[in-house]
Design a binder for these strands. Structure first.
Lengths: 337, 337
DNA sequence: TTGAAAGCGCTAACAC
DNA sequence: GTGTTAGCGCTTTCAA
């Protein structure tokens, strides 16, 4: 029945004041053992539990952390969110995720959430922040950590796409390839992040370091998507002197490349090596060699950083770069002699 | 700077009392237009926003809904969560997801959360509830909706696994198969749900209806997992008169079956038809024929139901059954003559 | 139509 | 060590 016992009720039952109950519950050492036990017993008997709203009002603290992220359809986003969950697990903070699909929604969310009476901190995953929102966040003194995003005003957790791109290309080079294609979404996209571009830069650097000239006819950019990538791969592979290896800037595109190879009856990896980027779940099923980003870990580190930032608001904004990893599976091999 | 304006501040600036500000903000019609405008202006000027904790304390309502679910590693869980998000989008409720990996964690979470000062309602996804927790929830008068779970005491949103299992088998039968294998995790698992078992029942019914005798040597059960399924499929396919089609009780297992076929040099779908269950993302990549559950919609309906339940606590527990759907791709075909 | 004031449940400063 | 009490910001009677 009455399961909404208040501290007052507990105090009464234990024959003490509410202050004492509060002390016991907050682990004050200024309570005599016998009293403590009486209080704890009363709590149990009444099935008491703290009224969070009351505590939060009194403390002026929400014990809540909000996360703004794109729709959860992307496995990479979910994986990062899992990391955040993990970081907050025993922190006493509630995590509220807000999915926003459009820049407008993102801005209006940010506007709402950049408010200390709403949340103690904000984690923003894979979303660009404009200057207006940046100003508001700073004005409101809201602790913020960015994951997979770049804005020097804030603490952020990122991976080096350039290193990843280089790593992918170097893997192919080390295998003996010299004709290495590159497929990506549009490199110059003002609304997008520069991750694709950085991967491309890494690819270029690797080729340069190996003394391989960069061949524009081995590069294709276009819309994101499996089918689109298949088209791009088709045009790459149908040329007179086709590449013997293709680096796709995402696993989804790599799947499209695989589709193209199948369609042209080109055997992978015997006749064509394919490497992707992301290590999405599907990559494992398809035995796709790829570059793995530490997604979960990025969420974890992001969450931990935010927790620290809330405790020490003076902590300067810094960028944490997490390492990427080459996952070798069965779509890459030395080129045929 | 001071972005923590209180209602008091607004009242002062607008030259009215806090009561009036509250009325304006809550859309009371008993406020003269001119006053309303003054208040609204003051709100804007001060960048006022409601202190949620204060409101919640006063109202005795948390405006929060908690969701208990298994780890977000499963795409099916994420998809349902997305549906819940959608349902709560403009409801004014905050959604807090709690991932629990073990029955112990689940129970302790449930214990914490079955508390009206904590949350206004509980959504429980793909998790069995024991009698003790059931009693507690009912005693605390906590509104609860179960998704993909069965406990007649509560409102629940489910799909008919039996219909799905039957649908899968019938698809194969309609194609002309009569030697139809079935691979699943253990059918009798006290801790688990009966979804696997129900799919099996559906499979049996379809065979019966078609007058096909049920052949135990065409059935395998074992641990969940791709490799485990591969083993099971191998033993099924290596027997003297192997099945010409295999129904795997999950897509993950179907992938294992595909692995087995590849290993034995059996062509899919020419020599072997394979159908899965779930329509996970990987299924699309692999062109796997499968049974799709309305995951997102289950979350959506579950969320909406919970919202209704919170408004009308007297709403009796009912079960909503959502239809499944056959997704035909390229791993099923008529058997070779 | 508006204002004054009580009180939601908690914590912490102060008094004893 | 423990109790008394003010007050966090809000909503809502009750009175004017």
């Amino acid at each position: 029945m009455m399961s909404n016992a208040t501290m007052q009720d507990v105090a009464q039952r234990a024959g003490v004041s509410v202050a004492t109950v509060s002390r016991v519950l907050n682990g004050s050492d200024k309570v005599i053992e016998e009293t403590r036990e009486r209080v704890l017993l009363a709590c149990q008997e009444l099935d008491y539990s703290l009224h969070l709203a009351a505590q939060r009002l009194r403390l002026g603290k929400t014990n809540t952390i909000c996360v703004i992220l794109p729709f959860l359809t992307l496995p990479s986003i979910v994986e990062r969110l899992r990391g955040v969950q993990e970081a907050l697990l025993d922190s006493g903070y509630d995590l509220i995720p807000f999915s926003v699909g459009t820049p407008e929604l993102r801005d209006s969310r940010l506007f709402d959430l950049a408010n200390r009476s709403r949340t103690d901190g904000l984690l923003i995953i894979s979303m660009p922040i404009n200057d207006k929102q940046t100003a508001r966040i700073i004005k409101n003194d809201m602790p913020v950590v960015l994951i997979d995003s770049d804005k020097p005003e804030f603490n952020r957790v990122n991976v080096s796409d350039q290193v990843g791109g280089r790593m992918a290309a170097e893997h192919l080079i080390n295998l003996g390839h010299r004709k290495i294609g590159f497929i990506s979404s549009h490199l110059e996209n003002p609304l997008q992040f520069s991750s694709t571009l950085n991967r491309f830069h890494g690819y270029c650097k690797a080729l340069e370091a190996a003394g391989i000239p960069i061949n524009p006819s081995y590069q294709k950019e276009g819309e994101h998507g499996r089918e689109e990538a298949e088209e791009m791969a088709l045009s790459l592979l149908k040329q007179p002197d086709p590449p013997t290896a293709i680096f796709a800037s995402s696993d989804t595109k790599a799947v499209g490349v695989l589709d193209a190879a199948k369609k042209l009856n080109i055997k992978v990896p015997e006749q064509l090596s394919v490497i992707g980027y992301d290590n999405i779940r599907d990559a494992e099923y398809l035995n796709l060699t790829t570059i793995q980003q530490p997604l979960f870990q990025a969420g974890l580190v992001g969450g931990e950083t935010l927790l620290r930032l809330i405790d020490q608001p003076r902590m300067g904004p810094e960028e944490i770069i997490l390492p990427v990893e080459l996952v070798i599976r069965e779509t890459t091999a030395p080129p045929k002699a």
